[in-house]
Computed example of a mutant assay.
Amino acid sequence: MSAHGGGTFASAGVRRSLLALAALAVVAVLVAFFWLPRVKPDFVQGGLWDAICRAAGVPRNWSAAVPRDDAQASRVASVFTSTLAAGGDVGHGGTLALRCTMCHGARGVSSSDVPNLAGQYAEVTYKQLTDYKNGQRRHALMQGLAAGLSEQDIRDLAAFYAQLPRPSPAGPPTEVPKLVSVGDPMRNIAPCATCHGGIDKKPGSPWLDGMSQAYLAAQMQQFAEGARRNDTLGAMRNIARQMRPEEVDAVARYYATRAIIGHEGAAPEPAR
């Protein structure tokens, strides 16, 4: 009697386990092919078969042609700031910067929709000018100006702007966007603050506080569309493609309010 009862209990347990396993399989299918495509639009890019192969962890094709080199990818490797600072003549850089004042301001702080350069990391200015010079970043005016710069000229300009005081902080906004502080792991978006300061600083990543909102939004849009491709290892393109328009606006607005534009050294006015 007890043996029969034990067998019945075991059978019931096995049945429950099989039902739970079947339910788990159904949930996994629903998540993989219905929920994930909604929150990650590129999940089914290429069709259902590609999505099935990706979910199974196998390639759609077992062999593929080696992609051609991207002519617009940056050729600048990581350059240590100390090396740039040691090799840059601040005085000569200041003389060269006179031709930059109309757009970037007399002291590296612009009142228009172009980047502030005051206090920017030397390796960032060096990289961007080099990319303009070599055609890996496109802008009619900047490419024309950078074309006449020598390697030493670029180092001098980078050293000059790096030593200028940054715009005075205006205090953080009342709310920090989620993408800045924690990112979105489900969409493979790391927090902005891990590269651009706040949590950590990735070498070669620019200081963004006080940049023009319109400029930042335009750059993220260019990264998303692939019009700008001089980011190292495609990091910004991979992130920007996942961002929604309202998230781009929120992040750009956040960094734009982090400093007073056009008032170097000025303290914030008291609230009225």
Rank of each mutant, 00 (worst) to 15 (best):
V44F: 08
E123W: 03
Q219P: 06
G204L: 02
D113C: 01
R75H: 11
A32I: 08
G7V: 13
V26A: 15
R253S: 08
A25W: 10
Q221L: 03
N230M: 09
T232S: 13
K40S: 10
V27P: 04
T83R: 08
V182W: 08
A190Q: 13
G7A: 15
I239V: 15
A162F: 06
D184C: 07
R166E: 01
A235Q: 06
L179W: 08
L96D: 05
A214K: 08
V44Q: 11
V39K: 07
E225P: 02
N230F: 11
N134E: 15
A266N: 06
G197D: 03
V251D: 10
H196E: 00
V124S: 11
T81P: 03
G57M: 00
D131G: 02
V251P: 06
L164S: 03
P172S: 13
T257A: 15
R229H: 09
A77I: 10
Y254L: 02
I52T: 07
M102S: 11
L179R: 07
D156E: 03
D231R: 13
G204P: 05
A240R: 05
M236V: 05
A170K: 12
M142S: 15
Q152H: 12
S17D: 12
L149Y: 14
D113P: 05
L141M: 13
F80L: 13
F80I: 04
H4Y: 04
T95M: 13
A97L: 03
A56Q: 04
